[in-house]
């Protein structure tokens, strides 16, 4: 096990605690002993260069991978849940962890409204008494469906898709598909929303809208958001807490300001100064130049 940067506890009440998370694929260590905390009603960003293991963390959290080592505790209002021991679909159903995908995964041949109603499947399934009451057309199911449509309408209003509710999801422009996927994830009524690069491929205006939308979700619905993002405008603009990964290891953890000034983060993003490899004369000159500059400052 390698050393890792110290855990900085976020300011709010903790919602998710990740401890000693390690994921190995054969000889490849995708995540190496990562621990961090995410708080309720806060936006926690996970950043890092490509291949740092960010999406793997998500896949472990949402049950697509079973971690090699580690404990993932969700501090659910109904009690603590150990995510690494739950079956994939139960994590969304019981623990209320929703996610979106880096490459959008909508039900493309189904309408926008249907996408949002499928997300409320478990609730509707119970209301339809596992299809039997629904087949008979009982009132209980009809009211449940009406409620589901209301919830769908609420989210469509917020992502601006109400007019196009009956369109096939696959026919929507890219930016709308991204927003629809977030709305669909919100329809399962989650306690933790995991967003995998929601701003990828959006233009600056769309990504500003997205910022606002995410802040709205955080403030109005009081849920925790876990965010993977490359767009630093999004990350620095809305995050309450940032976790930085590099080569599967956590290199920094803290508030946006703290992370921005962390030398380890700067090294990961801009590369190390490789003075040792330079010929001695050049290294001397460089050192002298640097001293001069510092003297001026």
């Amino acid at each position: 096990m390698s050393e890792q940067a110290a855990i900085t506890a976020p300011s709010g009440t903790p919602l998710l605690t990740v401890e000693y998370l390690t994921m190995r694929f054969g000889g490849l260590v995708a995540i190496d002993n990562v621990s961090f905390q995410a708080a309720d009603s806060q936006i926690t960003a996970i950043i890092g260069p490509n291949g740092a293991g960010k999406t793997t963390v998500f896949n472990c959290l949402t049950g697509f991978y079973i971690p090699t080592v580690g404990r993932l505790t969700l501090h659910h209002p109904k009690g603590d849940l150990l995510l690494e021991q739950m079956e994939g679909y139960r994590i969304a159903q019981k623990a209320g962890v929703a996610r979106t995908f880096q490459n959008i995964r909508l039900f493309r041949a189904m309408s926008v409204l249907e996408n949002l109603i499928v997300a409320q499947h478990n609730k509707l399934m119970q209301a339809s008494a596992f299809t039997f009451a629904g087949l008979l057309g009982l009132a209980r199911y009809r009211t449940a469906e009406k409620d589901a449509v209301e919830i769908a309408k609420y989210w469509m209003d917020h992502v601006g898709l109400t007019d196009r509710a009956d369109w096939n999801a696959g026919n929507l422009p890219y930016g709308d598909q991204r927003r629809l996927e977030i709305a669909r994830a919100m329809c399962i009524d989650p306690v933790l929303l995991c967003l995998d690069e929601p701003a990828a491929g959006l233009n600056p205006r769309e990504s500003a809208d997205l910022n606002e939308f995410l802040l709205f979700i955080r403030d109005e619905h009081k849920i925790g958001i876990l965010l993977i993002e490359h767009d630093m405008n999004v990350v620095m603009g809305i995050s309450d807490h940032i976790v930085v990964l590099d080569y599967g290891r956590k290199i920094s953890d803290g508030s946006p300001e703290a992370v921005r000034n962390d030398p380890a983060v700067i090294r990961a993003y801009l590369g190390e100064e490789e003075d040792e490899d330079l010929p001695p004369e050049v290294a001397q000159d460089l050192a002298a130049a640097r001293e001069q500059e510092e003297g001026k400052a």
Partner: peptide
């Protein structure tokens, strides 16, 4: 049954099984 959640779940499963799992189906 086309109008019931089970049928929508079938169709969703046809479209994308991974997304279905992420939604708790």
């Amino acid at each position: 049954i086309r109008k019931l959640p089970i049928s929508r779940a079938w169709e969703a499963l046809r479209e994308d099984e991974i997304a279905c799992r992420s939604l708790g189906l």
